[in-house]
């Protein structure tokens, strides 16, 4: 019996030492794992990454609404600006639902204050000899040209041109066919003078490009427009037309021979009443340069800013 009592004491000592060792080990492990907890604390929603995404989504949605409205995609009832303001407020809902679905309540509001939009006119018509020449007081906010046929001309005499003038400065964009290429080859170029300095002519050649859509605002040319082979390409010649050299006043005149075929679309800052519809074309009221208020509120991020929405407009 005496031997059994001695063994019991040794077991007790062993258990005590083991318990102390386990407690010490637990302290060490807990201290280590604390670092991992800190590193894993936080994410895009806490940092504000979601606010950036929400702002970009709102800007894209409002721009899409304005773009659709101005191109006749919807038929608004009543005044354009009021209809636009009413529909803008609905656009925050999708983003708010997206935020809530990710496990964090996010309140996103997109709204218009003071109805900050400007009335304008979209002038459209066929590219031919009856192209309009706008008054010097009219400023173009956007210009798009869709050329479906360019006549072959060995001497490059037949061209379609757009001239923008401000005082003694001028800028001219021309479109003609390539003298050496095939019938569908298109040349887009610019010449001009700004601040009494003649700028070096530039041009871009697009092989087998028709129909071609020319966007001076972002200096791009869409070749084979409307077909499955449609490709958007950057044209350095147009770069200075849109943003590189700006004019305070646009005196836009267009000229083309009868052999050209295509369409143009100009967004100008005057209301419909002061811009006459060109022969064979139309002048419809639009709104542009909209400013909306964007608000993003989550438990960690408060962000409120104004967003200027001007899709396809010249800066």
């Amino acid at each position: 019996m005496a031997q059994l009592n001695d063994r019991g004491q040794l077991l007790l000592v062993g258990a005590f030492v083991l318990a102390v060792a386990l407690i010490g080990l637990t302290v060490v492990i807990n201290a280590s794992t604390q670092t991992t907890t800190v590193a894993g604390n936080g994410g895009a929603s806490v940092n504000g990454g979601d606010a950036v995404a929400a702002r970009e989504a709102a800007e894209r949605n409002v721009g899409s609404l304005l773009w659709t409205l101005n191109r006749g995609g919807v038929e608004p009832t009543g005044d354009l600006d009021k209809w636009f303001a009413k529909n803008v407020s609905y656009l925050g809902n999708g983003t708010r639902t997206y935020g809530a679905r990710r496990g964090q309540f996010v309140n996103v509001t997109v709204a218009m204050y003071d109805n900050v939009v400007e009335p304008g006119t979209r002038v459209t018509g066929p590219v031919d000899e009856s192209l309009p020449s706008l008054s010097p007081s009219v400023r173009a906010r956007n210009a798009t040209f869709l050329v479906t046929d360019v006549p072959r001309d060995e001497e490059d005499q037949m061209e379609f041109s757009v001239r923008s003038r401000s005082g003694t400065d001028y800028w001219q964009m021309y479109v003609n066919s390539s003298g050496t290429g095939g019938l569908d080859d298109v040349v887009v170029g610019t010449i001009g003078r700004v601040d009494f300095i003649n700028r070096e002519p530039r041009q871009c050649t697009f092989d087998d490009a028709l129909p071609v859509r020319i966007n001076p605002a972002d200096a791009t040319v869409v070749t084979k427009y409307g077909t499955p082979q449609e490709t958007s390409r950057y044209c350095p010649a147009l770069d200075r037309f849109g943003s590189g050299d700006s004019f305070d006043v646009y005196d836009i005149s267009l000229g083309a021979s009868n052999d050209f075929s295509g369409e143009y679309s100009l967004l100008v800052n005057e209301s419909e009443s002061s811009v006459a519809a060109p022969p064979g074309g139309s002048a419809v009221p639009v709104i542009y340069n909209a400013t909306v208020r964007f608000r993003y509120r989550s438990p960690t991020v408060v962000y409120e800013t104004d967003i200027r929405v001007a899709p396809d407009e010249i800066p």
Partner: peptide, 26 residues
């Protein structure tokens, strides 16, 4: 990272009317 995000949010034109990002550090 929070400063960079705030900087990105504040880079809009026009400038934001209100911007605050709260981080809960230990």
């Amino acid at each position: 990272a929070t400063l960079v995000h705030a900087d990105r949010l504040a880079a809009t034109e026009p400038e934001p009317r209100n911007l605050a990002i709260t981080r809960r550090f230990p």
